[in-house]
């Protein structure tokens, strides 16, 4: 593994033969993917290749046509209480942050632990403050999301996920909506999470970050997983022509940064 990290063989997320259409568009084609405990999987690929859809399929924000999703040994049902419960075990961080606009930063982080996990207000707030401190926005706890910068909002979103003690966190292009000067602060928080052993699935266009943090890189195109390899292997010698084309298309931007 890339950073000498030893990954357990305990599967946290298992996708088995997932197929999905948007109307006539076959957006996920027989996707099979297992993410192990402590593993960081980075998904890359051209725009429209189905990365977001795959990411959102893991906690069933998208419906699927066929296949099975297993979270830490439990099959994710289509709907109902059990689905909500399994979802609560998988965090999700979105491109557009999606903080609750009417709640303070502190309340954004405590609402789910209190209402879903039934924690006391005091316990939830104490932990929330620790998490906000960990991501460096504890001084903003009393403000509302619109008063924060994008980078700060995204770090709050990460803290909100962490407050549920998730078994894994999904990131769908977490830095794509950020001004360039704020990308670093979010990637730093994510790097730290990876170092602490969090299981992560990350869709991103930040190739240097992928090189540094990924245990495994997955290359998608046209709704299929075309390559799956350790980052040094993938970036040095992509096997498919489409992966080579994709990496070339990123061009100078990446070789410079």
């Amino acid at each position: 593994m890339s950073n000498g990290k030893i990954i357990s063989q305990e599967p946290i997320i298992e996708l088995k033969h997932i197929d999905k259409h948007f109307g006539s568009l076959h957006v996920l084609k027989d996707i099979n993917l297992t993410v192990h405990k402590g593993e960081v999987v980075v998904i890359i690929g051209p725009s429209g290749s189905g990365k977001s859809t795959l990411c959102r399929t893991i906690n069933r924000l998208e419906t699927i046509d066929s296949g099975e999703i297993v979270i830490d040994g439990s099959v994710m049902p289509k709907e109902g209480k059990k689905l909500a419960e399994l979802r609560s075990q998988i965090g999700m961080v979105f491109q557009s942050f999606n903080l609750f606009a009417h709640k303070t930063i502190l309340d954004n982080v405590t609402i789910a632990p209190r209402d879903v996990l039934k924690k006391s207000k005091r316990e939830a707030e104490e932990e929330a403050m620790q998490l906000l401190k960990r991501v460096g926005v504890d001084s903003q706890a009393g403000k509302v999301p619109a008063q924060l910068s994008g980078g700060q909002q995204q770090r709050v979103a990460i803290a909100r996920s962490l407050a549920m003690h998730p078994k894994a966190i999904l990131f769908d292009e977490p830095t794509s909506a950020l001004d360039p000067e704020m990308i670093g602060e979010v990637l730093d928080v994510m790097t730290e999470l990876a170092r602490d052993g969090m299981t992560m699935v990350i869709v991103t266009h930040e190739m240097n970050f992928a090189r540094r943090v990924a245990d495994r890189v997955i290359f998608m195109d046209g709704g299929s997983i075309l390559e799956e390899a350790a980052p040094e292997e993938f970036f040095a010698a992509p096997k498919t022509q489409r992966a080579r084309d994709f990496l070339n298309s990123l061009g100078d931007r990446e070789s410079r940064s």
Binding site: N59, L61, A84, S88, F94, A101, V116, A157, R160
Partner: peptide, 14 residues
């Protein structure tokens, strides 16, 4: 925004 609803769903809210 639909995103806020999705965030709530992803946190396990019914």
């Amino acid at each position: 925004g639909a995103g806020q609803i999705e965030a709530a769903r992803s946190l396990g809210m019914t």
